[in-house]
Design a binder for these strands. Structure first.
Lengths: 306, 306
DNA sequence: GCTTTCGTTGCATATGGTGCAATGGCGCTG
DNA sequence: CAGCGCCATTGCACCATATGCAACGAAAGC
């Protein structure tokens, strides 16, 4: 109780203690400063307010009305101060706070959501917000501090973006186990063009990477279906007819359960595309965001190893 | 706006202004201290809290979560501080406050209540409490600071009681104009004993004064009626049958309207009993209580003169 | 690459709080 | 009512801390 909050005016504390204990001398003992100082500080306080706070010429300290007002004020202020200290303490221990994420929809698979849920459980009180805009928007959000962390496909050239970890994440052709492509060890773009394709629209990073590869191979892909939904792409491929192109991370769960298979694409760039965790250069990710970043980094490395 | 409340930590103010203006330099201009100081003070704050408040390595000032917490805290504290200042200002101007009075019931006549009402009107916001306990209780209340001012019959021997003003207030026999005693210029206790008397109980100061007089005169008064209500005593006297004993002040209004007459009592002590305004020795009656005391004093002198 | 602007750090200075000692007041006791 | 003890106040020397000026480092705009 009555621990000195460094924020609060010492004079008020002196007055407060003296009022509570009914004597400057007792206050002096408790606080650890000379009585003279206490007396002077209280006088100074009265001069500042222009009102007498204690009744002079009296043995014990008696408050005037103004004194009671100031007393209650300090009491309130003390409570507020302790509240602030507690909240800051929680922040320091990462028991509260918030982390804003911007993650491409392709990465919002079971593995990532599992990781996020795990983080939630280990850090109760941290509010987590996840958005799934296009890559360009993700980069903008990270630059504008609207998101602490972004997860995008392939590194960006933005100078003010820092990539924390970038794991190889080649784009593969994805189809059902019964599909003609399923048995192949690799496939070219020209091969792909012969099948029914389901691809994201041109604005998507995947599609932009493909455009570059198409130019190189002089083979043009005409998707039978175009969708912004990664989920739909997966489902269509599972049905057996369609082939889609996705990074491994987007179909980790399906690969495990055997409902989808992936075939490497034979292309310089596509094989070396990578997944990046990014944040704004110079931004201090303290506490919760830092830990989440660490956790996601560990997860990514696990996926890489397996 | 944002005027410096001398109570609040300067460091917080620096941080607050810098955060609002988005720049230490602007804050420096507004506050009037060097940028270096502001920078150092904010750093010191961070060290105290153990948390970063602003994001470093950045041109403009951006708050961290902890920074926002501290920012809001100071904002609240500032508002509280201003509220306190305002209330103290009101107290200084006597627009608020309270005065506790302890007045013997005998003095709660129209004149006194008029004076109190007048005070109320001239000092709106001052809450006035009036109690009417026995004299002994009044003295106790003044000693214990439960009442600022007391009004009692005759001075007290209490050493810690200060009498501000003491006006002669002889006890008179009081009866209706048609009563046999009405024509007399003075009356003895022996005369009184022959009539129907209405007196207060033995605990009352009036009755105690009478007891002493009775002993002296060897004449014993047997009241036909005993009441603690001064009002009832007056009304009974007005009816014509009863005689009562009261100080002049208790029947000022009735004397003016002619519904009662007073006949001096021929007794050394009773003629020299007096009315006293008292307060505790050493107690500073600042502001409202002081003014009310002054006002009551002036009133008492008016009554004495007339 | 240069310049400008902003924040940080080093050092001398001044303002203000502090402790010790002496003084003044009030209350209690003999 | 005189003396004593406790408590608050005041004078003075000291010390801590915030401040200003100046130099430095870093980031943003041209």
């Amino acid at each position: 109780m009555s621990q000195q909050s460094v924020l609060l005016d010492a004079r008020l504390r002196y007055f407060y203690e003296a009022a509570n204990l009914g004597s400057m001398r007792l206050a002096s003992d408790r606080i650890g400063v000379a009585v003279s100082s206490i007396s002077r500080q209280i006088s100074q306080l009265e001069q500042v307010f222009g009102v007498a706070l204690i009744e002079r010429g009296r043995r014990s300290i008696r408050l005037t009305q103004a004194g009671r007002l100031v007393h209650d004020f300090y009491k309130q202020q003390l409570a507020d101060s302790e509240a602030l200290t507690n909240r800051l303490q929680e922040l320091r221990e990462m028991k509260s706070g918030r982390v804003d994420l911007a993650i491409g929809e392709g990465f919002l698979n079971r593995s990532v959501t599992e990781a996020l849920e795990q983080f939630q459980q280990r850090n109760p009180g941290i509010s987590l917000t996840i958005q799934s805009p296009p890559t360009a928007e993700i980069i903008r959000m990270v630059l504008e501090d609207e998101a602490h962390i972004g997860m995008i496909l392939s590194t960006t050239a933005e100078p003010k973006i820092r990539t924390r970890v970038s794991v190889a994440q080649p784009l593969n052709a994805v189809c059902s186990p019964g599909h003609p492509l399923a048995g192949k060890t690799s496939v070219t773009l020209a091969d792909l063009a012969k099948h029914d394709l389901c691809l994201p629209p041109l604005e998507f990073r995947i599609r932009q990477a493909l455009r570059a590869a198409e130019k190189r191979a002089q083979a043009w892909l005409n998707p039978a279906m175009t969708t912004t939904s990664i989920h739909m792409m997966r489902e269509l491929a599972k049905d057996g007819q369609m082939v889609t192109i996705l990074p491994t991370i987007s179909i980790v769960a399906e690969l495990e359960e055997g409902s989808l298979v992936s075939v490497p694409l034979r292309d310089e760039d596509l094989e070396h595309s990578s997944l990046s965790l990014i944040y704004r250069l110079g931004r201090q990710l303290d506490g919760a965001p830092a830990r989440l970043l660490q956790l996601l980094e560990a997860r990514l490395k696990t996926w890489t190893d397996s």
